[in-house]
């Protein structure tokens, strides 16, 4: 169950178990994607150099990297609010998602009333609503964070609900036969059983939360990577845009990594002997 979610664990599981051949496979699974990415970057570089493409149209990987190294202070200034707002939006979306999932799990009325609406709500092209958030909440951080929560909470609700409901009937019967309280069933069984689901929802939510903040910054901000991308593109400063996008990727990876780390720690805590 847990293995199905974290595909990245495949490398670690395969390597030590089956000796040399698996070890080679493990190396392959690292070398192949990195090799392909390096090849693509090299092709891009060659295309720009050989085709004499002007940097306004397409800056080369090397010049983009050079810009990042040169102006990391500006990039960092803009990366900070974007990352913090994304993290805040993500955390609120996670809390909201889990709370809604608990309500849906424990109340049949809430489930029947809420669930179809949630699915319908998911069909709205939510990005189209971004400008309305500015009308409602102004041009500050709050409207970007709210929009970020707005588009990120859905996968958490769905995944967490599925996780809570994944506990099989015999297990619940066993708990009942032991006269377990609803709270004990939740803390000992439902919540730990749902953890892999919750984290898979959170991994989707973190990328959506970043998208939400970037869109917000496209429309409103005076700072942030989204603002930098729009601003630089308008001035035909493509190199700056490209650098900002690269930094954005790094920030996204960092946040994703934190979620993965959280999952690792949570698994440790719940499978340990001392809970």
């Amino acid at each position: 169950m847990a293995a199905a979610i974290g595909t990245e664990t495949g490398v670690m599981v395969a390597a030590p178990d089956n000796g040399t051949r698996a070890g080679l496979l493990g190396i392959r699974s690292v070398v192949l994607p990195i090799g392909l990415a390096a090849l693509a970057l090299a092709a891009w570089q060659a295309f720009v150099v050989i085709g004499k493409i002007p940097p306004v149209i397409l800056p080369s990987p090397i010049s983009t990297l050079a810009y990042i190294v040169e102006r990391w202070d500006i990039l960092l200034t803009h990366a900070t609010p974007t990352t913090l707002e994304s993290a805040l939006g993500f955390l609120l979306a996670t809390v909201l998602g889990i709370v809604l999932a608990i309500i849906i799990t424990y109340s049949a009325v809430a489930r029947e009333a809420l669930y179809p609406n949630l699915v319908f709500f998911q069909l709205i092209p939510k990005i189209a609503l971004a400008p309305l958030f500015i009308i409602w909440l102004g041009v500050g951080t709050q409207s970007r964070v709210a929009f970020s929560v707005f588009i990120a909470f859905f996968p958490v609700v769905i995944a967490t609900t599925a996780g809570f409901l994944s506990v099989d009937r015999s297990m619940l019967r066993l708990c009942r036969s032991l006269t377990a309280s609803e709270w004990q069933v939740f803390t000992h069984v439902r919540f730990p059983a749902a953890l892999p689901y919750i984290f898979s929802g959170m991994k989707v939510a973190i990328t959506l939360a970043i998208i939400g903040v970037i869109i917000g910054e496209f429309i409103t901000a005076q700072a942030g990577l989204g603002y930098l991308i729009i601003f630089a593109t308008a001035r035909a400063d493509t190199e700056v845009s490209m650098a900002a996008i690269v930094v954005l990727c790094v920030c996204g990876l960092l946040l994703y990594g934190l979620v993965a780390l959280g999952e690792f720690i949570a698994n440790r805590v719940f499978s340990s002997e001392t809970t």
Binding site: M1, S170, L174, S177, A193, L195, S271
Partner: peptide, 15 residues
């Protein structure tokens, strides 16, 4: 009472 079902119904994350 101690109950045993058709499936072992163990908690998969516990030893």
């Amino acid at each position: 009472i101690g109950i045993i079902f058709q499936d072992a119904t163990l908690l998969p994350w516990k030893s």
